[in-house]
Design a protein around this nucleic acid. Structure first.
Length: 889
RNA sequence: GGGCAAUUAGCUCAGUUGGUUAGAGCGCUUCCUUGACAUGGAAGAGGUCACAGGUUCGAGUCCUGUAUUGCCCACCA
């Protein structure tokens, strides 16, 4: 802190330090107030649409959301600036099981359960909960800077979407694509509902394989079977073996006796039974195992359900009735052991299904459920991806999608919970009593009476639909479907879907199917799949693990822009992100740099000089160089964004702004910053960089942009910069590269000899060729200024001054005069190191140039380049040796 | 059992059509508080690109295999 500033702070618009909180609040309110986020279907522009992956109403913003939504915001803001009518449609998901669990947990604190409350009262509580907490994540998204059209916010249980859900159910039912039936499904005993296959998370568990003997009726023989879940034996109705298995031929047609319960079991033969597994013989439990279920159907076996919905054993379990499944397992094993029926116990690793919501071990469970027939829906969905109408980025996910789609199985959509879309099916009991296949009414609106018999006492199916049954129609239900609104017509199909790979099957694949089925068109063109955000040890971030870096905390401390920029920068295409708090310092530092450079530019701005575009002649080489770099940057950033290479785009801007504009251009022009050329160029580069950066860092760029001369109300709607080919000058780029190299060479010597940065040095430059000499002469002022040189002599044939150190780059030799400082030993060492380097390179290069094959087969420009290099290196080597010799003399 | 990713500097990671002396950020060393910025500036050290083969004039990049790690899918009880 300076105690007595000589002059009042210029550039009054930008405060000394960037205050993220105030700025973010101010601009977000302004943007909202002015309706900048809104998209209209009446626009003449081309539409660009993204629908948000609706976060659960139970959710709070975590880093995964922050990444997901930052990407969407970047795309939306980019396209908006490019002149599209950009719609980012927000909303939330009612999250059936998750929300019900949360509310039930809060009921428990009041010693209530949903059952004591009753369905209606319970649902009231859930709605109340959602009013209170359901919008938390929306507010958090706003703090992130999300430019969603909030007036269009939808909720999967709002009226329109609920109507769309029923419509979809009815249409699929009428087409024969929805059916009800008794099948083995995945049952969560804790949530007490069926789950789809996708909702079961398989974990490898080291369990046991128990070998036990079942007696054969009318003999003293027995058959050995192996199982991992011995308690299911209580539901056994058969024993099976492979017909080719020699070991069991004598059992053909016989009957086995189930231990403990003494039930008679048929012995069947089936090709699908693997003789190599366990003992080769299989116990068959049709009600509690998917394979056994199929065998049961095939051989018309009885199914005996031994479990209650909470996975305790029911009356069919005889003496074990009322016991928990795992307790029963222990008890049964003990008894089997006592009776010497248990022969052997082996360790066995197998995949055990767990509930994706509560991690409880799933039970395969026979029950009456509703299913969607998926094969017919999958056909077209396979086609559009094969034809490239919808593409995954990165492309490897195309294959994952197609594999799953090709092996798709029917989707169990009924859930035995209360929070969700009630299945639009009503039953007429009198009709059903007459004929069980009748008396079922499937309708969008609740029917008043049975159309068959006129009975008005209809009973609605108690189940609700899978949460994903409302999200799979999200891309069009949110746009007004089943009404064919102008809005729907204009914005559908959407353009980009941004999501993580964990919900490709749950959500993305199903949306493609439903979009094709109900809209006749794929719902999006590109599916951008990003990685999962993990903590720095690689574990998935979660609140329960306590390893989560809270994005809101980062926003509070470093600002939303810092969070966004850092997050995007460390996320390579489709790779998982390892995240720690320190990584966000990167974003904060960049925001700080941007802010301070902007202050510096503001302090030195002469607004009257900005009006006229200078002619090329009015621009210095440095001016033309930074313009050239600017336009290359514009070109690259635009291309990267089109290709979804967000981290690369961020990196390109970062490098340009920090390392070219600030480190070089600003330092070069500091002495003559009032010149018209510099003023214009500086403003141009600053303005365009802010625009390029806006999708990444919306707040700080708006704040700065508003303080500089500009036209238009907001940077949000300023036109995206266009790369002008005529400004790109690769000759100038090469010249500057040489100059920068020369400056760095001098600085290197200065640093090696510990010359005080305040002191000037004398330098003699020997450039052997006109080409380099001319360039260096043209830029001599810059070189002198940047390397702090008081006297700079340049020529073709200058000799080394006494007491000087040498630096070589290319064909240029630079002598820095070090009167009284030169230590011959040290300088010799420096040269020797340089010599070793050069020798290594020469050796490497010679190998190539002596290779006839290389000379024959490599492209000419490559060979020429290598020759030139070799020549240069040889030259340098010679000069280094000369210098070394001079030192020794 | 099938598939996919990853393996590059002390750490975290970039490196898309094979072709300069393989890059960045953090950390480290030395110097610098000069009126934009110490959340900064200058200079520097640090890598046989997991391993073994192969294709090629040329491989971090392509192919095959191996190892290690992680993830996804799969009804072997």
């Amino acid at each position: 802190m300076k105690s007595t500033p000589k002059a009042p702070e210029p550039g009054p618009d930008l405060s000394k330090a960037y205050e993220a909180k105030l700025v973010e609040k101010k601009w977000y309110q302004t943007w909202m107030k002015n309706g900048y986020f809104k998209a209209s279907s009446k626009s003449k522009k081309k539409p660009y649409t993204i629908v948000i992956p609706p976060p659960n109403i139970t959710g709070i913003l975590h880093m995964g959301h922050a990444l997901n939504d930052t990407i969407q915001d970047i795309l939306t803001r980019f396209k908006r600036m490019q002149g599209f009518e950009a719609l980012w449609l927000p909303g939330t998901d009612h999250a059936g099981i998750a929300t019900q669990n949360v509310v039930e947990r809060s009921l428990r604190e009041e010693n209530l359960t949903r059952h004591t409350l009753g369905r209606e009262k319970f649902l009231e509580r859930v709605w109340k909960w959602r009013e209170k907490y359901g919008n938390t994540i929306i507010r958090q998204l706003q703090r992130l800077g999300a430019s969603c059209d909030w007036d269009r916010t939808r909720f999967t249980m709002d009226e329109g979407l609920s109507r769309a859900v029923r419509e979809v159910f009815v249409r699929l039912y009428d087409k024969g694509l929805i059916y009800r039936g008794n099948y083995i499904i995945n049952w969560c005993p804790r949530c007490q509902t069926a789950l789809s296959d996708e909702e079961v998370h398989h974990k490898d568990i080291t369990g046991h394989l128990y070998y036990m003997k079942y007696a054969i009726e009318g003999s003293d023989e027995y058959v050995t079977i192996a199982t991992t879940r011995p308690e299911t034996m209580l539901g056994d109705t058969a024993v099976g073996f492979n017909p080719k298995d020699e070991r069991f031929q004598h059992l053909k047609g016989k009957t086995a006796i189930l231990p403990l319960l003494n039930r008679k079991l048929r012995i069947i033969e089936d090709e699908d039974i693997d003789p190599k597994f366990g003992s080769g013989a299989l116990k068959i439990t049709p009600a509690h195992d998917p394979v056994d279920f199929l065998l049961g159907k095939k051989y018309k076996l009885d199914s005996i359900n031994i479990l209650n919905p909470d996975a305790s054993l029911n009356e069919n379990a005889g003496p074990y009735k009322g016991m928990d499944r795992f307790e029963a397992r222990k008890k049964i094993l003990a008894e089997l052991e006592d009776r010497r029926i248990l022969l052997e116990t082996k360790e066995h690793v197998h995949a055990v299904g767990h509930c994706y919501r509560c991690s409880t071990v799933i039970e395969p469970y026979l029950s009456l459920q509703w299913f969607v027939r998926m094969k017919p829906l999958a056909e077209k969905a396979i086609q559009v991806v094969k034809e490239g109408k919808t593409t995954f980025v990165p492309a490897r996910w195309n294959k994952v999608y197609l594999d799953w789609m090709t092996n798709i199985r029917d989707w169990c959509v009924s859930r035995q919970i209360w929070w969700g879309h009630r299945i639009p099916v009503w039953y007429c009991e009198p009709c059903r009593a007459k004929n069980p296949s009748e008396g079922l009414i499937v309708a969008v609106e609740e029917p008043k009476k049975c159309p068959k018999c006129g009975n008005a006492e209809l009973v609605q199916d108690p189940d609700v639909l899978d949460t994903w049954f409302s999200s799979w129609i999200w891309p069009f239900s949110t746009l007004g479907w089943p009404e064919i609104t102008a809005y729907l017509k204009y914005f559908y199909p959407t353009d980009t879907l941004v999501t993580g790979y964990e919900i490709i099957f749950f959500w993305v694949a199903r949306m493609i199917m439903s979009g094709l089925e109900f809209m006749g068109k794929e719902p999006f063109k590109t599916v951008y799949i990003h990685g999962i955000v993990r903590d720095d040890t690689g574990a998935k971030m979660s609140k329960s693990l306590g390893n989560a870096v809270d994005p809101i905390q980062i926003i509070d401390e470093y600002g939303a822009d810092a969070l966004r920029f850092a997050l995007i920068s460390i996320t390579a295409e489709g790779q998982d992100v390892y995240c720690s708090k320190e990584k966000f310092e990167f974003g904060r530092n960049f925001a700080n740099k941007l802010w301070n450079a902007s202050r510096f530019i503001a302090m030195n701005r002469k607004p009257r000089l900005l009006k006229k575009v200078p002619t090329t002649a009015q621009l210095s080489s440095a001016d033309r160089w930074i313009l050239s770099r600017l336009h290359q940057t514009i070109e690259k950033v635009t291309a990267c964004l089109e290709k979804h290479r967000f981290n690369e785009a961020a990196g390109v801007i970062y490098d340009f702004f920090w390392h070219e504009l600030c480190d070089w251009y600003l330092e070069i022009v500091k002495g003559h910053i009032d010149s018209p050329g510099v003023q214009w160029v500086l403003h141009e580069a600053h303005d365009k960089t802010l625009k390029l950066l806006h999708p990444f860092m919306p707040f700080i760029t708006e704040e700065i942009w508003q303080s500089i001369p500009h036209t238009g109300e907001t940077i949000m709607r300023a036109p995206w910069p266009k790369a002008e080919k005529k400004r790109i000058d690769t000759k100038i780029d090469a010249q500057m590269q040489l100059v920068i190299g020369e400056i760095q060479a001098i600085r290197n010597v200065r640093s090696a000899w510990q010359i005080n940065p305040k002191d000037s040095v004398k330098v003699v430059v020997k450039a052997g060729r006109d080409k380099e000499l001319k360039v260096l002469q043209n830029y001599s002022t810059i070189i002198a200024q940047m390397a702090k040189v008081s006297s700079l002599q340049m020529g073709k044939n200058l000799s080394r001054p006494k007491e000087s150190a040498v630096a070589s780059i290319g064909r240029v030799e630079t002598y820095v005069v070090l009167t009284g400082l030169v230590d011959v030993k040290v300088e010799r060492q420096r040269i020797e190191i340089a010599l070793t380097d050069v020798d290594k390179m020469i050796k490497n290069l010679q190998g190539r140039l002596e290779n006839q094959e290389f000379l024959k087969k490599a492209p000419k420009d490559i060979v020429d380049k290598e020759r030139l290099k070799a020549e240069e290196l040889a030259n340098r080597r010679q000069r280094l040796q000369d210098n070394l010799k001079a030192l020794t003399d």
